[in-house]
Design a binder for these strands. Structure first.
Lengths: 113, 113
DNA sequence: CATATATCTGAATGGTAGCTCAGATATTCA
DNA sequence: TGAATATCTGAGCTACCATTCAGATATATG
């Protein structure tokens, strides 16, 4: 037990509020289906709900629910054209985050550290 | 509806298995308490369970449960010293991931396009 | 050996998250 | 206007997750 050290570390941590904000952003990427939706939009540039549902293999309702979350979080934006709604990525940083993760966690490489 | 485009996008997506792997990694960072634990370890270099619990303000049991997840995922490693167990970050990529996220989601900056 | 300390573990609990289903809204077309 | 299409929405269900609680394990100390 080292109370002084505990306090030192504690003082340098992100606040609970900041941690909550960060966690919420990571949470959006923490579901495989939602992750594939984001990838689909990055790949296609723009997709309507029906096509996106077909791409990821989910129902249109489930897809709409997920898109709502991404929309509320500001990760995607919409363009309405008649009856259809086209979704596109609005968050310019997601691509970088995903690239980093893919690079390090998918291309299984021996540990360099 | 554009079946050809759907198939084209679908073929370029990460597989459901790969998406699952990525999502699991993001999931570890999707909880504010766990996120602060990771930060604590990055900051301190090494911390025992009791001190870590004190830093993030959780019970020792809850902390132990969370550390188990991080350990199983290979994100942290342990060093045993008598009765105490010292945890440290093993995943050399988490820091980068967190830096990117903090840079883009915490330092609230107007959208650059 | 007995006690205290540090950590771990499993079961139970409360809250949350994603899906389905039914139905609502909006828009196009006849 | 009425029918069909595209999307959205809320309620209900199930599964999962983080915590607590009680107790187990392991190690140091007397």
């Amino acid at each position: 037990m080292d109370p002084a050290r505990v306090e030192a570390v504690r003082s340098r941590l992100p606040s609970p509020d900041d941690a909550e904000v960060l966690a919420q952003h990571f949470r959006l990427l923490a579901d495989p289906v939602r992750l594939r939706m984001v990838y689909s939009l990055l790949e296609a540039g723009e997709l309507c709900v029906g096509d996106l549902a077909a791409v990821v293999g989910s129902s249109e309702s489930a897809t709409s629910h997920q898109l709502r979350q991404l929309r509320l979080a500001g990760l995607v934006r919409t363009r309405k054209e008649g009856r259809t709604v086209h979704y596109r990525i609005a968050d310019t940083h997601v691509r970088l985050l995903l690239d980093v993760a893919v690079e390090h966690y998918l291309h299984e490489h021996e540990d360099h550290g």
